[in-house]
Design a protein around this nucleic acid. Sequence first.
DNA 1: ACGTTGGTATACATCGTTGCAGATGGAGCG
DNA 2: CGCTCCATCTGCAACGATGTATACCAACGT
Lengths: 334, 334
Amino acid sequence: MAVTMNDVARAAGVSLKTVSNVINNYEFIRPATKQRVLEAIDELGYETNLTARSLRSGKTSMLGLVLADLSIPYYAELASDIMKAAWARGYRVLVEQSGNEPEHEKAALQGQFRSLTDGLLFIPLALDAEQIISAAGKKPLVLLGEFVQDPRLDMVLIQNQEAAAAVTTHLLAGGRRRIAVLGAHDGDETGSNGLRLRGYRAALAAAGVEYDPALVVPCDWRRDAGADATARLLDSGVEFDAVFGLNDVLALGALHELLVRGRKVPEEIAVAGFDDIDESRFASPSLTTVAPGRTEIAERAVELLIQRIESKDAALTVQQPKAAFEMRVRQSAP
Amino acid sequence: MAVTMNDVARAAGVSLKTVSNVINNYEFIRPATKQRVLEAIDELGYETNLTARSLRSGKTSMLGLVLADLSIPYYAELASDIMKAAWARGYRVLVEQSGNEPEHEKAALQGQFRSLTDGLLFIPLALDAEQIISAAGKKPLVLLGEFVQDPRLDMVLIQNQEAAAAVTTHLLAGGRRRIAVLGAHDGDETGSNGLRLRGYRAALAAAGVEYDPALVVPCDWRRDAGADATARLLDSGVEFDAVFGLNDVLALGALHELLVRGRKVPEEIAVAGFDDIDESRFASPSLTTVAPGRTEIAERAVELLIQRIESKDAALTVQQPKAAFEMRVRQSAP
DNA sequence: ACGTTGGTATACATCGTTGCAGATGGAGCG
DNA sequence: CGCTCCATCTGCAACGATGTATACCAACGT
C-alpha cells in the first residue's frame, strides 16, 4: 500500500539501509548517492513510517500532557504554550483530560497511553505526591502547577505564595482592608489554594491587618462557583471592600456577580485574580491579576522533561525550577 | 527492558500467540489457560506495546486535529469536546496548531505526523478547498467549521447563515436599526465571515431595513481586534445602536471598548456574538449570542471520521451533516 | 472402530524501520 | 608493490505485536 524504504531503495538502485542512512543524515554517503536517493523519495512520495521507527528505536518523540480539561482557559493557554515548546524541540504532545477525577489521573499515569509517549507532563489535581509516586511508572515525569509538592519529584514551581502576597499587598496599598478570598478553606495549607492563602495571610500580617476567616470563602475554581460564592458573601452581610479570586475565572465570576448586583468595581469593591488569562485583559473593567509566568513554565517543563528523556544518566538530582511572576495592574483594582 | 508478550508466555507456560489471543479476547481459550495468562500479566506488570501493535495492524487509534491555536477559547472548547467524543470510541487525539498559517496547515495535512493518525479532523482557516484536496493524502479527512465548503469533502456544517440571521433578527426585534458588524468585509461571500454576513443581510432585507456597508468593519477574529474595530467605528462618527460580532471574542472585545468609552450596554448599544463560549455567559453584561451546537459538531465529526476509517467501503458518498444552532439571549441584547 | 467435527493452542511469517557487523574498493604509505 | 586505512555501502537480525495456517485432541456419529 504505502511506499516503503524498500521501494525507494529499488528505485534508487541502492540498498534499503542506504536509504535509511540518507534519511538519518549518516555522515559517509557520497553526494551523488544521496541525491539519487532523495530524488527517488521525492518521486515516489515516500514518507517515513513513524510507527515503525518508534518500534525499532524505542522512542516515540511524543510527550504526554495530563490536565483537567482544555475548556478551562488557563489549561488551554498552558497547553498551547507547551505544544509550541515541544514542537520546537521535535516532540509532539498527546493531551489527556483527567476531568479532575482521581481515577482518570491514575489511569493516565499508568495507562497504556504511556507506551505511546517518551515522558509525561502532569498537572495533578486529585492525586497527592504519594499516590503519584506509587502510580507512576519508570518513564520520566515532570509535574506542573504545584498542587503537589514533594522533594522526590521533578516539577516546575509557581511562586504561589509570593505572587498571592504581591496581589494582596497591592490591594492593601489601594487602601482596602477587608479583602475577601475566593477558592480556599480557612485551614488549607497545601496545594495552590493553601499556598496562595498563606501568601494572602503573610501580606496581611506584614501590613498589620487582622486576618478574618469569615472573609475566606471555599468554592471550586470555576466561574459559576466564583459568582455563587460572591452571592453568598453578599447575602451573608459580611463587609468587604475587595475580592481576591485565587484564580482568574473565580475573580471574573465574582466581577460579574458584583456588577449584576449593582456594586461599583473598583470604587466600592476592588477585584483581583491570579493567572492572567487572556480574557482578563478584556473584561470590563479589565482584571487586575498576577501572571505566574505561563510561557516560562511551559518552556521549563518541556525542557526539563526532554532532558530527562534524552539523558542516559538517570541519577540526575531532582530539579524544581521556579517561574518568575509579574503583577498586572488593571482597572478592577488600580 | 520492558515486559513483552514473550515474557508473559514463558511465565504462563503457553505460547506467545496464546497471550496475544487472551489479550484480544479470542473466543476459544480454556478458562483455566486464560486465567493463568491473566495472572502472569498481572504479576509481571505487562502492558501492551501500542507502537508494535500499530505497526503490525496498520492502525494507530489516533485522530489528528488541526486547528489554529488552543488559546482561542472556541477551539479549546471544541477540542475538549472532540477529545471526549474520540476517547469514548477508543481513539486518542493528537492536536496540531497551525497558527492560522497556510504553510503550517499544508504541513499538517501532508506531514509525517499523518502517519501517526488514522484520520484527520481539520479546521481550515488559510487553505481553500482546492488546496486542501490537492494537499491531502489518502487518509480519511473530515473538515470542521466551514470556512471551506465543497461538495467533494466530508465536513460537519455550522448553519452560519441561518444562525447569523437569527441573531440579526433578534436585534431587529429589539428595535435596533443600525447594526454594526465586526469581522467581515463588505464583499465577503465565502467562509464563515461571508456566510454570516449574508445571514445578516438576509435578516435586514426580510425586515425591510436598508443595508449600509459603512456598518461592516473588517478585522481579525480576535478580542483586541474587536476592541480596536469598535474604537474605529466610534471615532468615525458612524451612528449605530447595536454591534454584532461575528464571533464571541469580537463581541466581547467590542463590549469592553464600549464600556470603557462610557457607552451603556444594552440601553444605548446592544451587543451580540456568535459561538457561545463559556466566557460569554459570565461577561458583564452577559453576552447574547448563538450556540452553533459545539458538542454536536464534535460528536458528529468524530463519528463521521471513525466511520470513514473503519468502513472498508471507500465509495461512501460525501457526508455533510448540519449541526443545530440555538439562540442564547442574555443581558447585552435582551 | 474410524473418520469427522470443532474447540484449543501453536509456529511462522510479517509490519517498516534501525543497530550492528561486516564487505568493498580506492587512496595513501612505506 | 603490498598493506593499511577509511569512506562508503550492504545484509541480517531485531523491535513487539498480530494474521494465517495448521497441529492436536477429545467427543461425536455412523
